[in-house]
Each structure stands twice: as C-alpha cells, then as structure tokens.
Design a protein around this nucleic acid. Sequence first.
DNA 1: ATGAAAGCGCTAACAG
DNA 2: CTGTTAGCGCTTTCAT
Lengths: 339, 339
Amino acid sequence: MNIKAVADRAGVSVATVSRVMNHPELVTAETREHILAVMKKMNYTPNWFARNIQSSRTGMIGLLVHDFLDPSNMEIAKGVESIAHQKGYHVMLCNTEFNPVKEKEYVETLIERKIDGLILTATTLKNSDLDRMKKQGANYVLVGKNKTINRQNIVYTDYKTATEEAIRYLITMGRSRIGLVIGEYPKPETEEKLEGYKRALKEGGIPFDEALVYQADNSIEGGFLAASRILDDKVPMDAIFASTDQMALGVMDKLKSAGVHIPEDIALIGFDDLRIGALVEPKLTTISKPMYRMGLMAARLLFDIIEGEGTEETQEIALQSKLKIRKSCGNKGRLKEIW
Amino acid sequence: MNIKAVADRAGVSVATVSRVMNHPELVTAETREHILAVMKKMNYTPNWFARNIQSSRTGMIGLLVHDFLDPSNMEIAKGVESIAHQKGYHVMLCNTEFNPVKEKEYVETLIERKIDGLILTATTLKNSDLDRMKKQGANYVLVGKNKTINRQNIVYTDYKTATEEAIRYLITMGRSRIGLVIGEYPKPETEEKLEGYKRALKEGGIPFDEALVYQADNSIEGGFLAASRILDDKVPMDAIFASTDQMALGVMDKLKSAGVHIPEDIALIGFDDLRIGALVEPKLTTISKPMYRMGLMAARLLFDIIEGEGTEETQEIALQSKLKIRKSCGNKGRLKEIW
DNA sequence: ATGAAAGCGCTAACAG
DNA sequence: CTGTTAGCGCTTTCAT
C-alpha cells in the first residue's frame, strides 16, 4: 500500500499523488478529488519515515520530567501539551526517575529520533552536555533554575524571594523561632530556599540558628520523620517552614498526633500548593508555584526558537510565586496586620 | 554526516558500516573497531528515518490517558514505562483530556508513526474503531473495562465486586441507610459500582432506595456539593459510599464543616486510595485499585502480543481491588467482627 | 569478510 | 497541470 499503488490505481503518476498530500493547490480539483477517493478506498496512509527522511521535521517535541506522580511535573506537562496541541505538535513525555543516566539516554534517543525540540525540567545535565546538544542542532528549553547553568533559554520561578516572603509573613505574625524543614543541599532549589530563609531572618533581626534546620526527604514520610526529630530534640519552635507541601503534610500529621496544636503552638507553612493542602485541618498556608504557566511559557519559548530560526540571544523568564494564606499560621496576627 | 561520509573516512564501503551497526558479528573485530572509532570521531548518528523506512520497528509504544493530573492514570503510566524501559522501548504518553476527538487523532497519528503498540486507558473508541485498528495491523491493549467492548486484550479491575465488598462491610458495621455518591451514569465504571451497591444491599436484605443515590462530578467540589444536597434534603443516612476518593474528600469536608461527626454520625468510604485519604481526619476507609500493576500487566500483555506474533486468542486480565480499612467507618463494629 | 548495487516510499527539481 | 526521474540515508541481497 504505497504511493505507487495509489498512483497506478488512480491512473496518475506518483508525483501527482505526492502533490495532493503536500501541495494540493497545484493539482486540479477534479484529479485531486479522484485521488483522495482512491486513497480512502485503499485505506492508504503515507509512510511517515519515508516522508521525513529528507525534511526531518517530525512534529514532535520531547518533555523530560522526574516523576509522573509529581503533580507539579504533570502541571508543567499539561501546559506544554496544551500549547503543543495548538501548534499541531505531539509531546513525548519521558520519565527520568531522577536518574541522570536515564535522562541522558532519553535525550540522546529523542535527538536521534529528530524531535523538533526538547524541554528539560530540573535537568541534571551539565553545561558541557547542553553545549554538545546545541552543537547537534537540538532546540531546547530548560524549566527550573540551575545555578551551574547559564546563558540558556530557561523558565523558572524565583524560590528565594518566595521563601523570603513566607518567612517575613511568619515574623509579622509574631513568630521568631522559625524551624526549617528542607531537602538535600546540592539541589539548587533547596539552596535558594535556604538563602531566602536566611535573608528574611536577617531582615527581621533574628539570628540564624543551625539547630532549627532539619534536612528531610521530600515526601510525607520525610516530613513526618523530621517532625519526630524536632519533637525529640525539644528545640523550642513557634513556627516551621517546610520547603515542600509534602513535607509540611508529614510534619502536620506528626505534630497533630503528638498533641501539638497548629497554629496555636506552632505555625506551619508549606511550598507548592498541592490540592491536599486545602483539605487537611488546619488548611495549610503555602506558596503556589505557577507550574502550568511555566509549562505554557516553556513551550511558547521553545516554539519561538524552533520557528524563528534566527534569534541568537537566550531568554530567561522568571515567574512569580504567590503566598497563599490559609489557617495553618493562625489569623490573629493576620488581622492585626490588616487593620 | 551520513553513512557514506563515514565509509569514505574509514576507507570501507557503506555496507560494512551498516553491518557494524546491525550485524557486528559479520565484521572482523579489527575493521569493526576502526569503524566505530571513526563514527565516534565524526560524531555520527544514523538517520533514524532512513533506518526505519523499511523495517518499521520503531521501539516506541503509545499510551493514552485522560488526564495527566490524575494519579491513577499516572500510576498506570509508571507501570507501563517501567516494563517498556526494561524492554528497551520508549513510551509516548498522550493526554486525551476526555476528548474523544483528540483520542482518535492521537490514535491515528501514533499508528501513522508506526508505533509498535498502543495502550488505551478507559477508551471511548467503539468496536468498529478497534476493528479498523486491528485491520491496519496495530497492536493494542485496553486498560479499564468497557461494557460495549468485547473480545479484546484487556486489563481491568473488577469494580462491582469491590463495591459489593465495601457495602457489605458497612452493613456488618451495623449501617443500613447507606447513601451513594456516584458519577455520571453512562460510564461503565459508574454502572459497575452501582450494580455492586445494589447487589450488596440485596444480599443484606436492605431495599434499594433511589433517594439515597446522589450523582456528582468526580471532584472534591462535586462531593462537597453532593453532601450539601444530602444535608439539605435531610434524608437520614448512617453511611455514605462515595464512588471516588475525590468525592469522598469533598463529602468529608462538607460534613465536618456542618458539624456532622464521622464516623459516629455517618460512616464514609471512598474508592481509589489516594494518598490524601490517609492524611485527612478521620483517615478515609477506601478501596485501593492496583493501578501500577495494571500498567505492568498491560505492558507485558502488549509485548507478548508484539513479540509472539502468533496467538490469536484475546486475553482478559482482571485484577483485584482491596478494601483498606481506616478510621472513617469507626471500629467498634470492626472489633465485634474480629472477636 | 567485504563491496556493488538494487531497492525502501516518498519528495521535489525539471521538463513538457 | 502532470509526468519523469534523481535523490534522501540506510539495509540487504548477491557476488567476489
């Protein structure tokens, strides 16, 4: 069922058949209709590979995320997909599982398969890898800041400022012994949050105290365990900033089951604005990241690059996070602040 | 940077270069090493399209889901991806957004791009569509039962039996006015659950009462609104079975804020075993679906089909759900049952 | 073990 | 407007 068969059956040349597929305006309406009819009858679909062997425009873009079950990742994916679908592109969504080897593998396969562009979220690739990609002619956009990387097309949210705002808010609520439950250090995201934390404390005249910082796994269990350690250590705290909602939920679970009252005894803030946060009691104050919009912006940026094959300058797009105030920090102080 | 260039540079013919890529055992170790070195030096990657123009084995499978943000969908995806990665395949994950048109589009594009197989979750396609796919030589597996479809390779969980078990459990806990908050009817999943509900009631000698059935959107808001209507209607109930956890969470939120005590006044069961369910107070009794395993099984089945191009018989694999008993139904009755 | 050459299905100059 | 034909990059007989 190739183009030749269609041509024979329709009594025309292969070129004409090819034309009705690629430049229909160059074919008489009459023959065009006839050929289309024959194609339908024969149930013909052109061989996509033969088609792309020369042009190498595949209409596909790749999107790498760390974890399909992470809603933040998937919101980005939805944003990307929505733009891509508008533009008639398809998205290859790949799950790297936080595995740098798998990430590299995927990048190579995708480039080999001549995807038109690539969006990397929270990449573990180094500058050298990216340079090599660029040399191979790959178009790509990064999502999520990475300190070791510069001069790239990138979309990110500013975690430092957002954290700063959250801590400042806790201070205006009258809290001063503010614990920090935070992920591993090498991650740029984590470091930004730590910086924001320190900066807000400094601004508020509160000395930084290492003893208030607890590292934990970014998971509910991680938060739970961190809270356990906090209680065991008996370090006095009147607030905890957990650097992700997942951790915050674990912290909340532990504190509640230990009879600690939130927000009366300890105020709690998370980061991510997971939907769950609005369902637990007390509802969790948190910082909402514009993940969907990041996906949109990343995709738009990528298509700008793909289509306008001219601009050499790299774009850096920073989006704003937003503090979402709910009950987990109390509201007396809040009222004071307002009135 | 094509095969010819490599051949020239290595002083061999294109055939030899091709052979080191496809049948390395047919080439002297010496020349093989030499050619590999040249390929590395030239940074050569074969043109994937030219390669597949004849063989049409792409090493890709497609996976269609309705919503990237639905954790159940994504657990399936993880299961599929894990098997695929093992087998050296890549997964094209597509988001149909519950849009039958988009689903059809994706199916066609994927088949056109010669994916080796396709996994459809909760498909809206009809038998005729599937037959046409089969005729085109597409390999596919369905995930999630569909009443209008038969004789297909399919993996699903039995919602009816699971619901039955849950309702039976409520009855053994001494509840008898059991409300049902359920999704729209045309969906097979919904209908199975309704049947299970009716069957358990019948078995327990409780007459079915239409007034206890509330339709709702499958969302937290939907559950919330359904609970509002239940309270407004003042229909006496001592238990509610919500056909999804999302709805159950909405129901819980509303009931709690209306001062109704769970489980003392009303017992509550959900369906899906979302992680959130274990974090709300009281922790939600629910039914856990083996989504990840469904993904695994579906992928295995698909690869069996792809690789063993012989078996004509279709396979139907039913997996078991499991009732996960937590606090939202109380435990006095439970204790009674145990001792 | 290696090379020459005939395709694979399609597109796009070039001719008419 | 349509047909002829030379590629696209690679694989695979068929010789040698």
